[in-house]
């Protein structure tokens, strides 16, 4: 068993995490004075001084950095300057709503994208393939904010079928999920198609047919598992795209999730909340990538038993 691979991936995740934290620290503390950036120019100097003290900005840089890590370890990422509540709490309470949206969209994306890609590959260059690929390219060329507005225009304004804002019931999820999942479904359909086509052209597929394996078995048992391996990477990337897309989607449909909070915080320059949100997203992405690497380990024997994860 190639445990070196696992150790390497976990180490890399930790290094990336440290990198993210440092990056945020640099952006927040080194590129400018966040206090003077946040407050109007004509603020009383005493108040500025007070805030600098509260934020620990009059300490030497290395001390700030150490304190910063200590704060993260305690789960303390500062307080929102809008309402004085802990930033972490503000983010955490929004997470369920965002998860509800992103996980549903993720499922939609996979359940629509993967079968569409498979159908397209198996009907290569015939009409189902052409139709699916046209929809797919249109899907990921359509910016989600425009798609969302079109949906509202048609289904809320004109047809009055669906609510344009979140109300908590299932009906209000339809449009946001469609808005958020469409582009990803298009990308996945395309990728699944091309990787399945590549696998179908491989010698081992031809050899399996030459051994008399029926075509549907060749696809199900040989081609699809092999095509799934590179697809995992793209699915991992899609998690990032979903998080980015949720910001827009939540804003359009007044969805009370992290994304919308992040945007209002950026506009209001509520740095503590922005920082907590970015760190939360980064942590999610690092975990997602680690899961992708783990999936490789489970699915691909060349990584599971190979030397250091790289083939000679």
């Amino acid at each position: 068993m190639n445990t070196g691979y696992l150790i390497q991936k976990v180490l890399r995740a930790l290094v990336t995490l440290a990198l993210v934290v440092t990056f945020i620290f640099i952006v927040l503390r080194v590129t400018g004075d966040p206090v003077s950036a946040m407050l109007p120019d004509d603020t009383d100097p005493a108040i500025i001084e007070q805030m600098r003290e509260d934020w620990g900005l009059n300490q030497p840089l290395w001390k700030q950095y150490v304190d910063y890590w200590a704060g993260i370890a305690r789960g303390d990422l500062g307080t929102s300057f809008l309402d004085g509540r802990p930033a972490t709490a503000k983010i955490l309470e929004r997470i369920p709503k965002t998860l509800q949206l992103t996980i549903t969209s993720f499922a939609f994306m996979l359940l629509v994208g993967a079968p569409a890609g498979i159908i397209a590959a198996l009907s290569r260059n015939r009409w189902p393939d052409r139709t699916i690929m046209t929809i797919s390219v249109s899907g990921f060329s359509l910016p989600n904010f425009f798609l969302g507005i079109l949906l509202i225009l048609v289904f809320s304004v004109w047809l009055r079928l669906l609510p344009s804002a979140s109300s908590g019931d299932l009906k209000s999820m339809i449009m946001p999920v469609f808005t958020l999942g469409t582009a990803g479904a298009g990308v996945i359909a395309r990728f699944v198609r091309s990787s399945l086509l590549e696998v179908l052209g491989k010698q081992y597929v031809r050899a399996a047919i030459a051994r008399g394996m029926p075509l549907h078995q060749v696809v199900l048992r040989v081609a699809l598992p092999n095509a799934a391996i590179p697809t995992i990477t793209i699915v991992g990337f899609m998690i990032g795209t979903l998080i980015a897309g949720s910001i827009v989607t939540e804003t359009i449909f007044s969805w009370p999730g992290v994304g919308r909070l992040l945007i209002t915080s950026v506009t209001a320059r509520d740095l503590a909340v922005v920082q907590a949100g970015v760190m939360m997203i980064a942590a999610t992405m690092i975990v997602a990538n680690l899961l992708v690497d783990l999936a490789y380990f489970v699915i691909d024997p060349r990584i599971r038993f190979g030397s250091s994860g790289e083939r000679q």
Partner: peptide
């Protein structure tokens, strides 16, 4: 039938 590159003729996974 058997082929030239045997490694590539077997399902790698």
């Amino acid at each position: 039938m058997i082929f030239q590159d045997a490694g590539a003729s077997l399902n790698p996974i």
